[in-house]
Simulated scan of single mutants.
Amino acid sequence: MSQDQDSNRRPIEISFPIDQVNEIAEREAHAKRYYRPVYTMHKWWARRLGSVFRTVLLSSLADEEMSVDTERQSTFGEEDGLPEVDWENPDALWDYYLEDIDFGDKTVLDPFMGGGTTIVESLRMGCNAVGSELNPVAWFVVKKEVEPIDLNELDATYEGVKERVGEEIQDYYRTECPHCDDHHADVMYSFWANELPCRNCGEDVALFKDYRLSSARSSKDDHDNVVCPDCWNMRVS
């Protein structure tokens, strides 16, 4: 390496593209309906964004030995190639963010892997990834995220489940359309809340103040986003 052997500093210790990654991270955080990497298969608390982890990995592990898929690069028309990185001032590493980078034999350890963002992003960049987690649910979820699967077999299993219990399950994920009395609208998530009897009258009281978990930022009316297909077609036509 051409870095100073005495200091042996990694690129992340010299510079970090915080402005660039903030811009991408903001877009990623607001596009979860469209960008669904494998580690979003299960909800997890305070999940960090993949773009942040990818940038941290790039700035931590990059050196002159990293490899880039040049065939894919030429496919995207980057005839001039990637810039040469000055390891004393590695700002040019940001141009490698979207590339298929392979860090080869480098190993990433995440002793608190949670929902698996670090593990998956490390594998995507060619690293050996080692994860540890006390929570058995997290361990199981990450294990399933990275295991190889037969996609045809998976699709067939989904179809079998849909055929057997699809309609029955969907009944639990429908709600009344606020714009008409004839149809139901599909819901994305259901929140199950415990109930306790009121201390005064004995009537059951749900231990949750509001059944609306979220609303679209672009809508002035929360109910605008809970409509049946017929009402939706009327609104957009």
Rank of each mutant, 00 (worst) to 15 (best):
C228N: 13
D80L: 12
A92Y: 04
R27E: 13
D110Q: 01
Q3H: 07
T175C: 10
R217Q: 13
V108H: 00
R47Y: 02
A31C: 05
E163G: 04
K162H: 03
S2Y: 01
R235E: 04
T117R: 04
E79V: 11
W44N: 09
R217T: 13
E64Y: 08
Y158S: 02
G81H: 09
F191N: 05
S7C: 00
L58M: 14
G115W: 05
R10M: 07
C180Y: 02
L57H: 01
G126D: 00
Q73R: 14
S59L: 07
S190G: 07
P229S: 09
E84V: 13
Y35V: 10
M113L: 12
E13M: 06
R235V: 02
E159K: 09
N225T: 14
E28V: 15
E99W: 02
E65V: 01
S132K: 08
W192S: 06
S122Q: 04
V130F: 08
H179Q: 10
E121V: 00
V68A: 13
D4H: 06
A46D: 13
S218L: 03
D102A: 02
M113R: 01
E133F: 03
L57Y: 02
P90T: 10
M125I: 08
P11L: 09
N22C: 10
D69A: 04
P90H: 13
D110W: 01
K32Q: 10
Y35S: 03
D69F: 09
E78C: 03
H30F: 02
V56I: 15
Y172M: 04
C127D: 02
V52S: 02
C180V: 05
S190D: 06
V137T: 13
R27K: 15
P178L: 12
W192G: 09
L134I: 15
P178S: 05
L49W: 14
S214C: 02
L57T: 03
R9L: 15
N89T: 10
N128T: 12
R174W: 04
E28F: 06
T118N: 07
Q20A: 08
L93F: 07
E176D: 09
R72P: 00
S190T: 14
H223R: 12
M66Y: 10
R27L: 11
R9D: 07
Y172E: 11
E176V: 02
E79Y: 04
P37W: 02
S15D: 08
G77K: 07
A129M: 11
D105K: 07
E203G: 00
Y35A: 03
K106Q: 13
